[in-house]
């Protein structure tokens, strides 16, 4: 459905101010309030979550290729989400899916971190292989659950799996908003410490940082952010990779500015991607996760080639 931008904005203004400037019909207003606006806002917050978490994860792993999607954290969160959709009644999924996605993402983050850690940072090879293994395992579990599901559950699962922002509603918007703002604040508090961590764990400790506590806090927060993003919008990969990389190229790797700028750009990027996904193949709709993967994967390969000598 086409709604003129000016009229849409007027309609939002009407709703907020109680005025009557907009000439839209009631059903058109409903489309704006029930579908378009929540979707737009959700896209921004999910983009913020993914880009921030990507940037923090790259700092934590001391490796610019660590994207929650690529290394399997998102897959872990997806398994959590799918298990919740399968085991909980539909009335409880609004909280069960995010909580379970967080648990899945957290378990994977911890596992990958332990696996890939060495005194020289983390090995790209181990990270990527761990990502492949975890994703393969995750998809087989998701497949198994789909196979076991009855018709109505299967419908829920398929809808969610498409990785789209179309399911936006007030609950998801609020959850994503609170998480994005909370993470923005907490990451900013830890940004200087994260900078020091880039020097290496021993060096960060010499600079007076409680490294273990910092790592644990960041892993939990990243799992929270990724888990929520996955619960709200399915797996959307490469936003967490492309955005921080772009900001680093323009503005340097200092986390104090990298994190807020990544959040900002991540929000904008996912919003634009979602608009393209919605309009490109009208009347059909591309899942936005598919679009970001389509654009992000070649970028990732270029990045990999650039650092090939150092892997």
């Amino acid at each position: 459905m086409k709604l003129p931008l000016a009229q849409s904005l007027l309609s939002i203004l009407d709703q907020l101010a109680g005025s009557h400037h907009s000439e839209l019909a009631d059903y058109e207003r409903a489309v704006i309030w029930e579908l378009r606006l929540p979707r737009t806002i959700l896209a921004v917050f999910v983009g913020m979550l993914l880009a921030q978490c990507g940037a923090v994860m790259q700092g934590l792993f001391r490796n610019p290729l660590a994207d929650p999607g690529v290394i399997g954290v998102s897959s872990g969160a997806a398994v959590g989400a799918v298990l919740a959709i399968y085991f909980f009644p539909t009335s409880m999924t609004w909280w069960a899916v995010p909580v379970s996605a967080f648990c899945g993402g957290f378990t994977c983050s911890l596992f990958i971190y332990r696996l890939a850690q060495s005194s020289h940072g983390t090995s790209v090879l181990v990270l990527l292989l761990a990502g492949i293994a975890i994703s393969a395992m995750a998809f087989s579990i998701i497949g198994l659950i789909s196979y076991l599901s009855d018709d109505s559950r299967l419908r829920d699962l398929t809808l969610w799996q498409l990785g789209s922002l179309a399911g936006a509603d007030a609950t998801r918007v609020w959850m994503a908003a609170v998480a994005a703002a909370g993470l923005l604040w907490r990451f900013q508090v830890r940004a200087a410490a994260l900078n020091a961590l880039l020097l290496g764990e021993a060096e960060a400790r010499h600079l007076g940082i409680d490294v273990e506590r910092l790592k644990h806090e960041l892993i939990i927060l990243v799992a929270l952010g990724v888990g929520l993003a996955v619960a709200c919008a399915g797996i959307i990969s490469f936003v967490g990779l492309v955005v921080p990389h772009f900001v680093r190229t323009l503005n340097g790797p200092d986390h104090r500015s990298l994190l807020p700028l990544s959040a900002l750009l991540g929000g904008v990027l996912l919003l634009v991607a979602d608009v393209i996904a919605r309009l490109a193949l009208q009347p059909a709709e591309l899942p936005v996760g598919m679009l970001t993967a389509l654009l992000g994967a070649p970028f990732f390969i270029v990045l990999l080639l650039q650092i090939k000598g150092r892997v």
Binding site: H120, G121, N195, A196
Partner: peptide, 23 residues
């Protein structure tokens, strides 16, 4: 502690690395 070698994969400028001493 002055380390023998330090792994830093991100393109900080030298001045930014020095500034980390102010942590």
């Amino acid at each position: 502690v002055l380390p023998q070698a330090s792994q830093l994969n991100f393109s900080f400028s030298a001045a930014e690395v020095v500034a980390l001493g102010a942590t």
